[in-house]
Computed example of a mutant assay.
Amino acid sequence: MPDDDDLVLPPLPLATGARLPDPDGRRITAVALVVTTEDGAQTRVELRPEHGAWWAPTPPPEG
């Protein structure tokens, strides 16, 4: 079980869709969550496409 202070993404789609809204309408090829800490550092969490939605990455196996 993760520590209470760990960032844990839920096991549900964080975004849906394959195109940006009009008038742009371009096809989306990647979606990322950018986390900024209080010291200004940034970490990108790349989401993975599956079943028409963008999901949090699969956590690495424990062990």
Rank of each mutant, 00 (worst) to 15 (best):
M1I: 11
P2H: 14
D4S: 13
D5C: 12
D6R: 14
L7C: 09
L7H: 09
L7R: 08
L9M: 07
L9E: 05
L9W: 03
L9Q: 03
L9K: 04
L9D: 03
L9I: 02
P10W: 05
P10L: 10
P11G: 08
L12W: 10
L12A: 15
P13A: 09
L14D: 04
A15P: 03
A15I: 04
T16V: 14
T16P: 00
T16L: 10
G17H: 05
G17A: 07
R19E: 12
R19W: 08
R19K: 13
L20C: 10
L20I: 01
P21Y: 00
P21E: 04
D22W: 06
D22Q: 13
D22C: 02
P23E: 01
P23K: 01
D24K: 04
G25E: 02
R26L: 06
R27Q: 11
R27E: 13
I28V: 12
I28L: 04
I28N: 01
T29V: 12
A30E: 11
V31F: 00
V31T: 03
V31W: 01
V31Y: 00
A32W: 01
A32Q: 09
L33N: 00
V34M: 07
V34Q: 08
V35F: 02
T36E: 13
T37S: 15
T37L: 13
T37K: 11
D39V: 07
D39Q: 08
D39A: 10
D39G: 10
G40M: 04
A41N: 10
A41R: 15
Q42V: 10
Q42F: 03
T43R: 15
R44I: 00
R44Y: 09
R44M: 11
R44F: 09
R44D: 14
V45N: 01
E46Y: 05
L47C: 07
R48P: 00
R48F: 08
R48Y: 07
R48I: 12
P49T: 10
P49N: 09
E50P: 00
H51L: 12
G52P: 05
G52H: 06
A53G: 14
A53I: 05
W54P: 01
W55Y: 09
W55P: 03
A56R: 00
T58Y: 09
T58R: 15
T58S: 15
P61S: 14
P61C: 08
P61Y: 08
P61T: 12
E62C: 09
E62T: 15
